[in-house]
Amino acid sequence: MEALEAIDKAHGESSLAQLEKGLEFRKIARSLFKSKAALAGLFILFIVIASALLAPYLAPQDPIAQDINNRLKPPVWDPKGSREHLLGTDHLGRDILSRLIYGSRISLIVGLSTVLISGTIGILIGLIAGYYGSWLDDIFMRLADIQLAFPFILLSIAVVAVLGPSLRNIIIVLGITGWVVYARVIRAEVLSVRELEFIEAIHALGGQNLRILFRHILPNVISPGIVIATLEVARMIILESALSFLGLGVQPPTPTWGGMLNDGRQYIYNAWWLATFPGLAIMLTVLGINLLGDWIRDTLDPRLEI
């Protein structure tokens, strides 16, 4: 048992490891500042997160206050635009910039919480399927196949339509259905780590399965999990806005980017700004996450192909 504890310790909190971590962190920070793409991604995300957190202070107007006299006002650079509404107003006279700022909240909440749920489920399933193998593995991998058989968006709109569109239901549906990609990759990683000598050694010393799984295997397979999670935030944000775009997202008057796009679509012939800006917001956010995610992948796990 002493030997086991020593191994656990070596994996955990030895001062040498701490020192290495510090050096590692500095190395990572340096590589981040070297990569222009990752910095750009970080910058975009900083703005999005800041606007979600500080929406009441940043938004120039009330995002749901209607003003019928000022409906469909173009952005400020148009001769007909006004300085009160920098990006113009929508069909109900609501300020588009303010709605964009508030809309970032729903996107981020959904993106982060769904990834937390699906990542936890997926990584756990991947660990179990990879480590225990045999029939457990078979069951989980067939479940994954079944899940993948449905076009994701089709399954989510059908289920959300049945359950009723609300923030909670969207998070549940996207969170529960997103596990497959984690499970598959983590499983494959576990399969190779499981065979390594140090795991065999811990086995021989009488280590418990669960302890081996979480203390020794998990830390060795977590990097692809982190990479996937980052990129999945982007995908979830797009899915949420697709649901909102189809009218199955968080219901009005709460501003969402997808919902704004849907409103704007009907005014495409005379008010281009309604649909253009929310789409740009989605694209830039997703781009920021993808840039950062690509960098994290190159840093943590360059072999990974996602």
Partner: peptide
């Protein structure tokens, strides 16, 4: 390619309609 991967399908569609159709 990176932009294409970040663009939501529905927004791209609307923008193409806006530019080439309208």
């Amino acid at each position: 390619a990176l932009l294409g991967q970040s663009m939501p399908v529905f927004w791209l569609g609307i923008m193409l309609i806006l530019v080439f159709g309208v």
